[in-house]
Design a protein around this nucleic acid. Structure first.
Lengths: 200, 200
DNA sequence: TTATGCAGATGACAATTGTCATAACTATCT
DNA sequence: AGATAGTTATGACAATTGTCATCTGCATAA
């Protein structure tokens, strides 16, 4: 019996997946979490064989959870299940050494089969991601990302400088550099591009 | 037997919902669509009793579909099933006279029951939406919305003025007015607020 | 007819933003 | 020690943005 845990904040999907997987004879859904924090603590206490992690969840993202599981030397295998084929997300998942990265756009029928294959030691990656991704690296460094994120929240260069204890000019330099790398003509365009690629 | 059609672009969710509903003795999923256009043509040809429509789909949104069904005098009952509790969406759905508006954040178990109740002539609205929404009207008029949308794509005031055959100053006036209404201190914040409320 | 209101335009002003050249200070590598 | 690279800072400049008061048509209602 494969014991699995589902972490997904959208209740309808979480419930439907749990039901669907429970119909399989060899799979048992032992727990469900609606945010990253809960997922982490349930995985620790329940020790499931596999966990299905959404990325964009409250409190902690699925990627955060995956990284912390590695740190703790957990034996639970991780399958990321997300809407986003964003290169940034995928790269981070690969670095965190997850066993699977599936898209919510993929077929339902394949999910159970993917779980079984992961149990056998295979890696399961949505075919959309296998080609044409690795080349698109995140061009932004940590500072640029941090500053652009704050800017994306509507913060002003001045506010950001106060928050990060940097000078006004430095903040603007970083934004300028980021926009240059993203080939964007202003903050708004830059934010669009970066968000869309999962670089923020 | 209640014949239903599901329109939802996310394949995993669509598949899971179809399976879940097909398990019910009195419900039969007669069709699935992955965009609004397909939904419309399948509803016309299959004449299901109920259709489940996602809002944010390619080609045509679920709201577009609902509105066109009314126009055509279709007898198929409509349940909107969406992630978004945005007031703008909800208002539009109410105006289109849909029979249900459920959130994907709601419980899976209730879905089949909601469908049965809709068949009996009830209206099904997610409880989150019943209170505290109607008052939050979209404060932006058509022009302001149009201009802020273009701005959200990274367009400059100058570019927008050329696109809409308005003067540079007029465009900035509209943006200023929109920001004032949204209580935002700059474009970026304004865009965030408006998008989050479904006002764009 | 006057009044009222709306869509659009103009001009002026200050603040913010985007760009660039340059420099100081570290830390690291050779 | 010298070379190199990364981080932070400055100053200067132009362009863009945000705000306001004011003005022109134009339609429509009193």
């Amino acid at each position: 019996m494969i014991r699995i845990l589902i972490a997904e904040d959208q209740r309808m999907l979480r419930g439907a997946l749990a039901l669907l997987l429970d119909l399989e004879d060899d799979i048992e859904v032992v727990g469900q979490a609606c945010d990253g924090e809960e997922a982490l603590s349930l995985i620790t206490s329940l020790q499931p064989d596999v966990c299905l992690l959404d990325i964009e969840m409250p409190v902690k993202t699925g990627l955060d959870v995956a990284e912390q599981l590695i740190e703790r030397g957990s034996t639970t295998r991780v399958i990321i299940l997300t809407t986003f084929a964003r290169t940034g997300y995928f790269e981070r998942a690969v670095k965190a050494n997850v066993q699977g990265y599936l898209l919510k756009d993929g077929p339902t029928e394949q999910l159970a089969e993917s779980i079984r294959r992961v149990m056998k030691g295979h890696r399961e990656i949505s075919p959309e991601l296998i080609f044409g991704t690795i080349k698109e690296e995140n061009p932004l460094n940590a500072r640029e990302r941090e500053i652009l994120s704050l800017s994306a929240q509507g913060k002003t260069a001045n506010e950001i400088s106060a928050m990060l204890h940097l000078s006004y000019g430095t903040v603007r330099n970083y934004i300028s550099e980021a926009l240059n790398k993203l080939d964007a003509k202003n903050r708004i365009e830059g934010i669009r591009v970066a968000e869309q690629k999962g670089w923020l």
